[in-house]
């Protein structure tokens, strides 16, 4: 079976406040990801791309539709099964300042992520595993003893990526992982994500509002607008010749792209 992740007609609606109508944040989205593929999901804030990624992560219940990972319908799982299944899909969040528990050392954070998969490890085994993770994301093992506040944004994002890799997931959802970072750090993180996805054969959903990043990273790109996927295609082709009006507007607006001319 080639379809690794299938999102089948997924909708999420939030009840309106008072008499306001319900807000359909994700409106009948269907997408499939092949194993090892990087799919870029582009759209502006409020288009539903974050809600969709949270729904795939099972952090937000679907109103209707299905999410099938490796043939397993995630919405049919009970609490215990879901908790076990969660290890297969992990997320890197946007804000590296909010995504790490400020009161845990990096060691504790990573050890927790590793042991979620392996169960309780002995001290030395756990240290070895943490060290390996830190190395993988390009950090010094001494980082393990520190707290999140002792790191810069880029380093925190590396730690957050390490945590996401801790339970050895097969699907990684990256929700705007570089948009809170400085330009010079952004490219470090993008390179890291690309390297990891190749080394570990990760399937990745890369959510961003930044077309230049998606263009560089994604095999295929989906453009999301008002809860719907309005265009989907090979990244290069889509960027070269967008079909939908909204994709055209989005591409035309990106200032970084116009600098080339």
């Amino acid at each position: 079976m080639s379809d690794f992740l299938v999102i089948d007609n997924a909708s999420v609606s939030f009840p309106g406040r008072g008499r306001a109508p319900a807000n359909l944040a994700v409106d009948g989205v269907s997408l499939t990801l092949a194993k090892g593929e990087i799919l870029g999901l582009v759209g502006e804030s409020g288009c539903g791309k974050s809600t969709l990624s949270r729904a795939i992560m099972q952090l937000q219940p679907l109103t209707s539709g299905r999410i099938i990972l490796e043939g397993q319908d995630l919405s049919l799982l009970d609490g215990r099964q879901l908790r076990a299944a969660r290890l297969n899909f992990q997320m890197v969040f946007q804000d590296p300042y909010a995504s790490l528990n400020p009161r845990l050392t990096i060691f504790s954070t990573l050890a927790e992520a590793i042991q979620a998969r392996t169960g309780k490890l002995s001290g030395p085994a756990c240290w070895t595993a943490v060290e390996k993770l830190l190395e993988r994301v390009g950090l010094d093992p001494t980082a393990a003893l520190k707290y999140p506040h002792e790191f810069s944004g880029g380093q925190r994002q590396r730690i957050a990526i390490a945590r996401a890799l801790g339970p050895e997931p097969r699907l990684l959802i990256a929700d705007e992982p570089v948009s809170a970072l400085d330009v010079s750090i952004q490219s470090q993180i993008i390179n890291l994500l690309l390297k990891l996805s190749r080394e570990l054969q990760l399937t990745m959903l890369f959510v961003s509002h930044d077309l230049s990043v998606v263009r560089y990273l994604a095999d295929r790109t989906a453009v999301m607008h008002r809860g719907k996927i309005v265009e989907l295609g090979e990244t290069e082709a889509l960027m070269a010749a967008p079909q939908h009006e909204y994709s055209k507007a989005l591409l035309a607006a990106a200032p970084a792209l116009r600098m080339r001319h």
């Binding site: 490219s187 077309l211 080339r260």
Partner: peptide, 12 residues
């Protein structure tokens, strides 16, 4: 280091 100015496939 602006991603838009770089070729896809090469490391940024």
């Amino acid at each position: 280091s602006i991603p838009a100015l770089q070729k896809k496939g090469e490391p940024l």
